[in-house]
Design a protein around this nucleic acid. Structure first.
Ligand code: MN
Ligand code: MN
Ligand code: ZN
Ligand code: ZN
Lengths: 158, 158
DNA sequence: GCTCACAGTAAGAATTATTCTTATTTGCAT
DNA sequence: ATGCAAATAAGAATAATTCTTACTGTGAGC
């Protein structure tokens, strides 16, 4: 590990990969695309388009919500980001493209990543294979996070 | 197995359980509720509210789409149906409440059930336990179903 | 079986999330 | 530096879902 290591070094790396992918895909490197990608890449909470827009407006007051949506869709088509499947109406996004799974708090809607290598390497039940071509398999865990549990206890006491 | 066994016997059973649950929950047994539940219970494709409405309109021409939505929401609150999490804008529903998992075709959006008991009884990675209270864990498999694969091949030949 | 209170419904308006249209701006190849 | 296709901003439009309101029907009590 180098002496120049900073918590941002992986983000820097990710930005470079992003720029490279854009150039290869003939996507122009606009300020909007760079900032939207950076904001999503540094987020760990799987923000919605609206959340991203709100965060970015502080530094880019003229950024339109439509651009956020359009840009995320473009990124998705180029496998730079993923739409996360939820039961809620607003779509949630992430720039984390390596295989992982999700913990979802049904109370605050927080989405957290986790890894589960032993699951990833477990073969599927045999009878599923004939269904078609399988692209990926993912686990979603629903529950209530610590924070929300604590809040509930406080409320009960009232 | 009785001589009176018919393919519908389990649906009959499910309808009785449904009626019982409604009575216990002080939900009036309206024609709309009965038919919406029956239609969803007999479906295996996880229909959207709109799909259910379309199917029911044949026999109930005055049924409003709003009633379908409202009724499904009521059922969901009483754990009679579940909203299925997808990446698409239209919500999909099911009356199948026993633990199971989903195969989703990214091409035709078909959602299929499957069971995986060995997964269900596998403990979660230890480091997840501290996140909060876990309610359930489910697997979603994405891919392309046989039908869609066949269609693609035909198209390629053209 | 009849009546009545009130939960539930239909219809259309409203809201929310997302996408489209169009005039203007910008990245980048030349 | 110039030109032009691609991208953006703003607001209109669309799609999915929910709300409002006047009317209807379920089922408890007689
Ligand atoms: Mn994730
Ligand atoms: Mn299912
Ligand atoms: Zn929470
Ligand atoms: Zn398919």
């Amino acid at each position: 590990m180098s002496e120049n290591f900073t918590p941002d070094s992986s983000l820097q790396q990710q930005m470079e990969t992003f720029e490279e992918t854009c150039r290869t895909a003939d996507l122009k490197l606009t300020h909007q695309r760079l900032e939207i990608y950076r904001e999503l890449a540094k987020a760990t909470d799987h923000p919605s388009a609206e959340m991203l827009h709100k965060r970015l407006q502080k530094t880019m007051p003229t950024l339109s919500l439509d651009t956020v949506y359009r840009t995320l869709t473009t990124f998705e088509q180029h496998h730079l980001v993923k739409k996360v499947q939820t039961v809620d109406s607003q779509a949630r996004f992430e720039a984390q493209m390596v295989q992982h799974h999700h913990l979802i708090c049904d109370s605050c809607k927080e989405i957290m990543d986790f890894h589960w290598n032993s699951f990833d390497s477990t073969p599927l039940p045999a009878d599923i294979r004939q269904w078609g071509t399988i692209r990926n398999k993912n686990v979603t865990i629903h529950g209530t996070c610590q924070k929300c549990q604590a809040l509930k206890k406080v409320k009960k006491r009232t």
